[in-house]
Simulated scan of single mutants.
Amino acid sequence: MKKERRRNKYKGWQIFRDRYGKWRAYHRKTGEKIDCDKFEPFTLAFDMEVHRINELHKEKQAKPGTLGMLIKRYRASDEFLDPEIGKAKRTQSDYQRVFDYLQPIEDIPLEWFTTARIVMLRDKAYKKLKWRWANYVVTVLFVLFKWGKLRDYVKNNPAAEIPPIPRPKSLLDANRPWTDAEREAVLAALPPHMFPPIALMMHYALDPQDALALPKTAISSAGIDTRRHKTGEPVYLPLFEPVADALARAPMHNAITLCANSRGKPWTYNGFSTNWHKIKKKLEDAGAVQPGLTLKGLRHTVATILREMGKDYGTIQNVLGHKTEAMARHYSKRADKTKQTAAAVADFGVELNKRKTKVVKPTS
């Protein structure tokens, strides 16, 4: 009887130890996870967190023809859940946050939603939770209504063609490319066990999480053979000296991942991020790097350098594991701007020289 009560308490949850012995807990339907370091499994605090999330996502009967109905049906679709064609777990969780945000209006009929009213929702979200969240709400609504239109739940997509709220001028560029001097300063400050992941990010443009999770079997004397987790796109790149040198300098370890922390265990993203921020802070204080340096900025760095070398967008797309050339253009946009402005400044200098008047020496 006691065992049955415990099973019912965690119904709808996946609770297990991963291959590294770390507890994991996921809400099966939404993919929402519990921080098992903060809430130890099977303790009272853990049970309270399970109850909180269960209540948050408790299903109620969605009214036909409403936003809630559309959300419920989309959330149960293959386009959302299927591991092959659906959204990644992280994206599912992010979408669920928007669905939770929209919960107060889920009983509103679909006919109520017009472009003007979604702009109103966007502006309200901006005032409450700022520009990034406001734009993300519109993005999710666009995907939701697009899915619904294809299935005759709605006649049109009212979230189409709504421009995003501009990025605030006061914010630094997100994930800007690193300068040559910044790359050299960071490499000089790294301890040996941080060399491999940084090298993979710096030279192969891997996402931080992809670099940290890369198994030893993904790399050989021929190079790297892996897939980008976010897009599922294959990445095949030859092994070359900077990466080979970083791997050779790394301390020996028995972890199944290529990269390991100072204890020889696989890195967690939070653990690596904590170590990285300590190093970055020291370098910022010393004036060796400028503010705004991020690990994801190394992807933009690789794309920028490749574009400056004259590589086409298709090549950059393959190196970075993007699904579209549009993303390759986005990641390398600084190189294109630099090329254009350099040419413009050079032309401007020539024009100024043409406009110079000859100095006439006075006669004696």
Rank of each mutant, 00 (worst) to 15 (best):
T91D: 01
H322R: 03
L239T: 00
Q61A: 06
K3V: 03
L56V: 04
P83K: 11
T274L: 12
A199K: 00
Y26A: 06
V350Y: 10
H51R: 14
H322M: 01
R355E: 12
H253A: 03
L129Q: 09
T363V: 15
Y20N: 07
W147M: 06
E32C: 04
V50Y: 04
P196R: 00
Y126W: 10
R263V: 06
P251Y: 07
L212W: 01
V360Y: 11
P104V: 14
A211K: 01
M252C: 10
D210Q: 06
M48V: 12
D180E: 15
R5F: 07
L295C: 10
K333D: 11
F39N: 07
P64G: 06
G287L: 06
V359M: 15
A181W: 02
D47F: 11
T217R: 07
N54L: 05
R52K: 12
V243F: 11
G65L: 02
N270Y: 12
E325R: 14
R329F: 09
N8G: 09
R227F: 03
E161D: 14
K230W: 15
E59S: 08
G264V: 05
N156A: 05
F142S: 10
A45C: 04
A248W: 06
P164Y: 10
Y236T: 09
R228M: 13
E233K: 07
P168N: 09
F142H: 14
D336G: 08
I305Y: 02
V319F: 12
A125L: 02
A326C: 04
E32Y: 09
